[in-house]
């Protein structure tokens, strides 16, 4: 009865080594970074004091500041987020189609679209904003384009994955009737990815509301401009008002998105 004495293990030897080496890599990386990173310990010791000082300067919140500039800036921020999300779709939908292996089968086109998607995602929205401010000057336009270019990678990647999960039965049935490409797209793929499409777009809009709040720091419009101005003038009570406004809008946007998603899906 040798089999009963067999010692069962969850992972094979190779897998154990692999898992162990991943842990080892991260722990050594962590320790090395901890040793070599330049942190001035004196700054850390009085951090709680400094934070309390900052909070005491922020209190009480300057509510009178809201109607002066914050209201307009918040509306502008929401416009940047919404328009940016809509402009993204112009670029993201073709790239998503190019990236889905059951729509286009050429590996070359996959690599081209993947290159665009990855570069859109790796460059941060603030960096995109810097680039567009250099092109179109400071203002809302730069913000919209920054949001749009940053979202292409996100929307394109997720939409491409949703397209790949489409049940090919109805698509093949349409092709068998001799339907042209456009009809296959519209009646075969489109109805199946619609729920995923709306949830991706809503999710991205929610993220974009957060992101567009900071674009103003580099001059691309929205509440960030107001925040930056008050901060440069050390008007911390106004800063607190702007932060409160951002917080409220972000929370409301999230609640809105959750409600719409529950209705749609």
């Amino acid at each position: 009865m040798a089999t009963i004495d067999y010692h069962w293990q969850q992972f094979s030897f190779g897998k154990k080594i692999a898992r162990f080496s991943v842990y080892l890599f991260f722990i050594t990386g962590f320790l090395f970074s901890l040793r070599s990173v330049e942190v001035i310990p004196e700054f850390l010791y009085d951090a709680p004091e400094q934070i309390m000082d900052l909070l005491s300067r922020m209190w009480p919140i300057d509510y009178a500041f809201y109607p002066l500039t914050v209201h307009e800036a918040i509306i502008e921020t929401l416009n940047i987020a919404t328009l940016g999300t809509l402009v993204t779709l112009i670029f993201a939908i073709p790239l998503a189609l190019m990236n889905a292996s059951n729509v286009v089968s050429s590996p070359l086109i996959h690599w081209i679209s993947r290159f665009f998607l990855v570069s859109s995602r790796s460059v941060n929205s603030l960096v995109w904003a810097l680039l567009f401010v250099a092109m179109f000057g400071p203002g809302m336009l730069a913000g919209v384009l920054a949001i749009a270019f940053r979202s292409i990678g996100f929307v394109g990647k997720l939409l491409g994955e949703a397209l790949e999960e489409v049940n090919m039965g109805s698509v093949e049935a349409l092709r068998a009737t001799g339907a042209p490409w456009g009809a296959v797209m519209l009646k075969g793929y489109c109805p199946q990815v619609m729920p995923a499409f709306f949830s991706i777009v809503l999710f991205r809009w929610d993220i974009n509301v957060r992101e567009s709040a900071v674009l103003g720091l580099v001059g691309a419009g929205g509440i960030g401009v107001v925040l930056n101005d008050s901060m440069n003038l050390f008007q911390w009570q106004e800063v607190a008002m702007s932060l409160l406004a951002i917080f409220t809008v972000v929370v409301l946007a999230e609640i809105l998105v959750i409600n719409i998603r529950n209705r749609l899906i």
């Binding site: 900052l54 603030l126 957060r210 900071v214 901060m231």
Partner: peptide
């Protein structure tokens, strides 16, 4: 709820 950049500003100040 806050974007990392805003948190970063507050931490840079503190």
């Amino acid at each position: 709820s806050f974007h990392p950049v805003i948190i970063a500003i507050l931490f840079v100040k503190s």
